[in-house]
């Protein structure tokens, strides 16, 4: 019967962000909200900051620090120029991700 469960679709429809702090999360909650902020950006279409085009999640190269998605070619460009992530300006080793 467990095999059947794989066909169940789960959609996030409510405002879960309001729900989390309302549970009384304070210290740890700060961290949790930040994580939610990052992942909330995935709720809509992903956009590469270099060419401003949509990136498919399965094809995206993600900045390991801020999770910003890049097209593979755009990430290669950053790697070849040793440029930092356009969003967080912290990660610069894109060569490690695209080789």
């Amino acid at each position: 019967m467990e095999e059947l469960l794989r066909r169940i679709k789960v959609e996030i429809v409510g405002n879960y962000r309001n729900f989390v702090p309302s549970l009384g999360v304070t210290t740890d909650g700060t961290w949790e909200i930040q994580i939610l902020d990052k992942f909330e950006s995935f709720m809509g279409p992903l956009e590469c900051p270099i060419d401003r085009e949509e990136v498919k999640l399965e094809e995206a190269v993600l900045c390991p620090i801020c999770m910003t998605p890049y097209h593979l070619d755009c990430a290669r460009l950053l790697a070849s120029r040793r440029e930092k992530c356009w969003k967080c300006d912290k990660f610069e080793r894109f060569d490690l991700l695209v080789t």
């Binding site: 679709k9 789960v10 994580i35 992942f39 709720m43």
Partner: peptide, 14 residues
């Protein structure tokens, strides 16, 4: 759920 990397948009399969 929201940090599940298999999530696509606002939905994912159980």
């Amino acid at each position: 759920l929201v940090t599940d990397p298999r999530r696509f948009g606002s939905s994912l399969y159980f």
